[in-house]
């Protein structure tokens, strides 16, 4: 990561945003699944999910392929509707339309410049010069201010995902849903992105729901890890490790082992 972006992130972390709630974040509820079931035809993908997530929590959802973890995220973002059960949000306005989604692929518009792509995140919030100013600001925060007017096709995979992250966060969403957004990156870029994500999350205090198949990533980032197996919550585990966390520490390794045992035991 270029030095400029690191300073940008540091200043970002140093000044807490004014919107930080005064009461402890654990009090308010971000969203809750109650007996949520989702079937496609005869196939039951989610089978009675009960999950309550407080505002500001970093939740990781793990499971093997096809366990329904991506479906859970799609329900949360309003891309699908549950077949049965209910999904409620903390307050009315924090509904589906205020949940932002980061996809596994960057999904940038190839015909729009980097800054215009970030402005997509302000659809219905701001336009014109105001949108551009805010987009340039957040591009600075992800360390890509100097690439603002380039086409996405010239960026590397990690840079594209940073643009996608900027696009997801520019509208200050209360909930950010992440569907394995780092899965396609190489190991080093991936760790860099995880650190960037953690820093921005600490500064902005949104609720993050990260679907991943990487247990190490889950325990490094999340406050709480949920394991889904055959459409049900098989394990719900807190990660009471202070931040900043040191990768490869014994504590994280123990938790990682516990989760892996559960997945394959």
């Amino acid at each position: 990561m270029p030095a400029a972006s690191l300073t940008a992130i540091r200043s970002f972390v140093a000044t807490p945003p004014p919107s930080r709630p005064a009461e402890p974040v654990e009090r308010k509820r971000a969203f809750a699944f109650k007996g949520v079931e989702k079937r496609f035809g005869d196939k039951i993908v989610l089978d009675g999910i009960d999950l309550e997530v407080p505002a500001g929590q970093f939740l990781a959802v793990i499971g093997k392929s096809g366990c329904g973890k991506s479906t859970l995220l799609r329900l949360l973002a309003g891309l699908d509707r549950p077949t049965a059960g209910s999904l409620t949000f903390g307050t009315e306005e924090e509904g589906h339309s205020r949940t932002r989604f980061m996809f596994q692929e960057p999904r940038l518009l190839p015909w729009a410049s980097v800054v215009r792509n970030v402005e997509v995140g302000l659809t219905g919030i701001a336009t014109g010069a105001e949108a551009r100013r805010r987009a340039l600001d957040i591009l600075g925060e992800v360390g890509l201010a100097d690439r603002a007017d380039e086409w996405p096709s010239v960026l590397s995979g990690g840079q594209k995902q940073r643009v996608a992250l900027a696009r997801a966060l520019i509208g200050h969403p209360p909930i950010l849903a992440l569907d394995e957004p780092l899965g396609a990156l190489d190991a080093l870029t991936r760790i860099e992105m995880q650190q960037l994500l953690e820093r921005i999350w600490l500064a902005q205090t949104f609720t993050a729901v990260l679907v991943t198949h990487d247990v190490a990533e889950a325990v490094a980032l999340a406050d709480r890890v949920v394991v889904i197996s055959a459409g049900r919550i098989a394990l719900d585990l807190d990660v009471p490790v202070a931040r900043p966390r040191r990768r490869g520490s014994a504590e994280l390794a123990r938790l990682e082992g516990e989760i892996l045992d559960h997945l394959f035991g």
Partner: peptide
Amino acid sequence: QLVEMGRVYG
């Protein structure tokens, strides 16, 4: 996928 992205972003 881009159309879906556009929808998610309102």
